Simulated assay, not measured.
Amino acid sequence: MPTITYTQTGSPIRRDKTQRATLVGLGLNKMHRTVTCEATPEVLGQVKKVAHLLKVEA
Rank of each mutant, 00 (worst) to 15 (best):
M1T: 13
P2I: 10
T3R: 15
T5H: 06
T5Y: 09
Y6N: 02
T9F: 08
T9P: 00
G10W: 02
G10E: 04
S11H: 07
S11G: 03
P12Q: 00
P12L: 02
R14H: 10
R15P: 00
R15F: 07
D16F: 09
K17F: 12
T18G: 14
T18A: 15
Q19G: 07
Q19H: 13
Q19V: 09
R20I: 13
R20G: 08
R20Q: 14
R20D: 10
A21T: 12
A21R: 14
A21S: 13
A21C: 06
A21H: 10
A21P: 04
T22K: 03
L23T: 04
V24Q: 14
G25P: 03
L26C: 06
L26G: 07
G27S: 08
L28W: 08
L28G: 05
L28D: 00
L28K: 00
N29V: 06
K30G: 04
K30S: 08
M31N: 00
H32T: 09
H32L: 12
R33K: 15
T34W: 07
T34V: 14
T34G: 08
T34C: 12
V35R: 03
V35Q: 02
T36M: 00
T36N: 02
T36C: 00
T36S: 04
T36H: 05
T36Y: 03
C37R: 11
E38M: 04
A39D: 07
A39E: 08
T40E: 03
P41L: 10
P41F: 11
P41V: 04
E42F: 11
E42G: 06
V43K: 12
V43H: 02
V43L: 07
L44E: 11
L44Y: 03
V47R: 01
V47T: 03
V47I: 15
K48T: 08
A51R: 15
H52Y: 12
H52W: 09
H52F: 12
L53N: 01
L53D: 01
L54G: 03
L54P: 01
L54M: 07
L54I: 05
K55H: 15
K55S: 13
E57N: 10
A58F: 06
